[in-house]
């Protein structure tokens, strides 16, 4: 029961990831692409947590943590570059 609901939830999260990839390809300017990258990261954090339960491995949560912090730094660096150059 629980596994079924969580699998459906992971599927919906994957769908939102695909929708934001469309914006990533279409986006008229750089900031749109960075925004959709940010949304993709957040959606993948949720997917990683769900998969961590489905496979019963707590180590995946550490991966989610490191991934979140790295993508936060990436967004900061890109935004700073767009604002005034490195």
């Amino acid at each position: 029961m629980v596994e079924t609901i969580l699998t459906i939830a992971a599927g919906i999260m994957l769908l939102s990831l695909i929708l934001s990839i469309i914006r990533f390809i279409k986006g008229p300017c750089y900031t749109d692409r960075v925004i959709s990258f940010d949304v993709m990261t957040i959606a993948s954090l949720a997917i990683i947590a769900t998969v961590a339960y489905l496979t019963q491995r707590i180590i995946y949560l550490d991966i989610a943590m490191v991934y979140g912090i790295l993508s936060f730094l990436g967004v900061l660096v890109v935004a700073r570059y767009l604002e005034r150059g490195l």
Binding site: A9, A10, I12, M13, L15, S16, L17, L19, S20, V39, I42, A43, A46
Partner: peptide
């Protein structure tokens, strides 16, 4: 997950 979909 539905909120994530609405965001996308």
């Amino acid at each position: 997950s539905i909120f994530l979909l609405l965001g996308a």
